[in-house]
Structure formats: structure tokens, C-alpha cells
Design a protein around this nucleic acid. Sequence first.
DNA 1: TGAAAAATGGGTTGTCCAATCCAAAATCTG
DNA 2: CAGATTTTGGATTGGACAACCCATTTTTCA
Lengths: 209, 209
Amino acid sequence: METRTEARRPERKLTRKGEQTRRRIVAAAAQLMYERGVTEATLEDVRAAAGVSGSQVYHYFADKQELLLAVIEYQTQSVLDMQQPLFADLDTMEGLRRWRDALVEYQLRLQCRGGCPIGSLGSEVAETNPEARLAAATGFVRWEAAIRSGLQAMHDRGELDADPEDLALATLAALQGGLLLTQLQREVRPLEVALDAMLAHIASRRVSS
Amino acid sequence: METRTEARRPERKLTRKGEQTRRRIVAAAAQLMYERGVTEATLEDVRAAAGVSGSQVYHYFADKQELLLAVIEYQTQSVLDMQQPLFADLDTMEGLRRWRDALVEYQLRLQCRGGCPIGSLGSEVAETNPEARLAAATGFVRWEAAIRSGLQAMHDRGELDADPEDLALATLAALQGGLLLTQLQREVRPLEVALDAMLAHIASRRVSS
DNA sequence: TGAAAAATGGGTTGTCCAATCCAAAATCTG
DNA sequence: CAGATTTTGGATTGGACAACCCATTTTTCA
């Protein structure tokens, strides 16, 4: 797969059916790339998993690269959607703790497999695919913004004596590192202690008014 | 590349020259796999980069999998060797800070490219290659142990009111997450704030005797 | 020093996979 | 409903790459 630097081709108009088929392909590709990595997920696998035939994939995507970019956006949206209900409460320690618990719980359900969908993709493409690297980086920027907004609210209420931007970025880093180690060790403990340490750090910066 | 679960073949005896050639192959493979990822680093590339010809690679390694395992061990050793001088001082806040500075400095020199050699390999192979996943996990266990021993010394002196094992694991997680985000964003800030937050957390658990 | 073992060179094979093509069926739109 | 457009099916091609083979040269060591 070559890295393309050209502009995205103009979106063709899709019928309802076409839209559905496209969606199915992206979802199947996302799943396979998550399970096996980008290079090991062949378009033949994607074709079969999506239940489409022959040239379908190339009818909706110029090449594997374009499909990959769609998958990165799809995974970013999925990850954010899943946490959406929890983001609203990240302006209290209780909310942060519920968020932490949910992340740990989720990894347990997955038996510590898979890691972070964005992080895994990002790591794989970072050095060989500038466009995809940027897409993953953008996903993380959105994720970080969601975390920051809770901490910012805490800060605005005068309850936090630290830069919310730094704290949010550090928290996301701890989460990513925790997920990676959890994935490799097949134990949730790395994720738990990483998040706990970061929450303790945040708590220690709280102002007892 | 298929995942082999069989036992390692008995090491053949190597001459001095053979030893050197093997080393060159592993070093070249490590570099290429670091730059391009495992699947994109072809054995033809490795052959050329190592300056060996034709069947050399298969003379020293049964298949790509065996070479990959050798590379993971090689990278683990490299990473630990590079930090060795700093590990000894991880029992003081000053030592921890010097370690932090060195890691940040190193990423700056690399222009934030490449990420962590072990983490990148680990992430790529985690879900498709149990043996390689285990090798990467083992590398991290060794790394964690090196960090822990400093914190353990602090704890043993009664200067640290926290579990050194948890702190070491959390610190490694923050480091890994920081490296990943730094690699994707091409800025050192994620690594800086992740490590700073963790050092601040450790400092906050210090006992002012 | 000479036979055995190890190292090297280069060619070959079979498979897998991204990408392309052409024609047929379904769907939309005036 | 009819012509245009979109969607689908299946077959094919061309290239890349892991893995294998055998002959030749170099090194070891008895």
C-alpha cells in the first residue's frame, strides 16, 4: 500500500443502498484491522466479512489507503460515542472514577485483548503513512478535548490548581500506556494503576475550599 | 508469516564470522522493523541492509518469525542498555528528573519519530502473534523492574509512602502513552506532561522526614 | 594440512494480494 | 415508463515476497 498525498477525490453521490454497503464495508474493515492490524487485514477478508462481492470495495474506495482513513475516522467516532455518557461528569472526582471503572470494566470484558482502536492503528501507521498518522493524531486531539472539558470545568470553579490542558493530555497518555501494557500482559492491572495514579495526581491538585 | 508455537530449534554452533553476520542481520532487521513495522520490512530489505546475500537470512533463522523474536530481544536489550546509567539514580527525585530529561531529549533528537521500539513492535504483534506478544511483554517486565528498583530503594529508606510496584508500572505506562502520543503528534509535549505528572505524583507521595 | 563443517551466492517457486476490467442487474429521475 | 446512473458479480493481472535449493567458497579443528 502506498501513501497518497493527493487531495481526497470528490465524494460521489451515493444512493441509500450504496450508503449502507459503504458503511458495512467500513465496519467490517474496522473490525478486521482492529483484530489483525492494517496489513494483515486483506481486502479479500474485508469483502467476505462485509458480505459484498468482487469489486465492491473498489467501487466505494479508491484504494486500501482511502478505506484505512475511513476506518480511522470510524474508530475515533466509535471510541468517543462509547464514552460520551461518561464525559459529561469528568468535572468531579466521582465522575472521573466512574470513567476509570468503565474503561477497566470494558477491558476486562474484552479479556484485555485489542488495546485501543485508535492507538493500535496509529502506532502501526505512524512512520509509514503520514496521512493516516495525522488522522489518528486528530482522533486523539478530539479525545483529549473531551477529557479536558471536564477538568476545565473543575478549574473554572476554582477547585483545581493545575493546568487542565496538561492534566488532560497526561491522563490520555496514562490511559494509552495502560491499555498497551494491559494488552501485552493480558492483565488489567497496568491500566488500573496507570489511571489510579493519574486520578490521585488530579485529586492531589484539588483545592479544598 | 505464520505464528509458530513449536520449541526453538537447538542453537547451531556459529563461528566468529557467523556470529558477526547473525548480529548484522538482527541489527539491520531491528532498524528496518523499527522504521517500517514488521510486515513492511521485507527479508529482501533486511538482506540488503545487512549487506548479506541470498539465503543468508535463512541460514541463521528458520523463518521471519524467528528473526522477529531475535529483534524483540535485541531491542529490549538496546533500550535497557541506553538507560542503564540513569537507572542507578532512580531512587531520588533528582535522578528521576534526569531520567525524564534524557528521555525527552532523546525524542527531540529523533524529531519525535519512531516511538518506543518495544511498544511499537508489541502493539503490532499483540493480537496475531502470541509468542512475539510474550517476548514484548517480557521486555516490559524487565524495564519495569529497573524502574521499580529505584522506587523500592526510596521506599526502603522510608521516604516513599506508596507501593513501588504500582508506581513503577504506572510510570512505565505514562512513558509509553507519552511516547505514542508524541510519535503521533510529532511534538514532545505529550511525553513531557505525562512524565511530569507521574513524577509530581511520586513527589507528592514522598515522606518529608 | 586435509577432511568436515560452516558460510555465502544467487537463482527459483509458489502463494498471496492489491488493483483493474467488463458486463449485468438494480435503482434512481425526468 | 425509459434512459441514465449507480450498484453488483466475477474473473484476471501483475507484482511482491516468504521460503527453499544447490553449488561454491571459506573457516574450523583434529
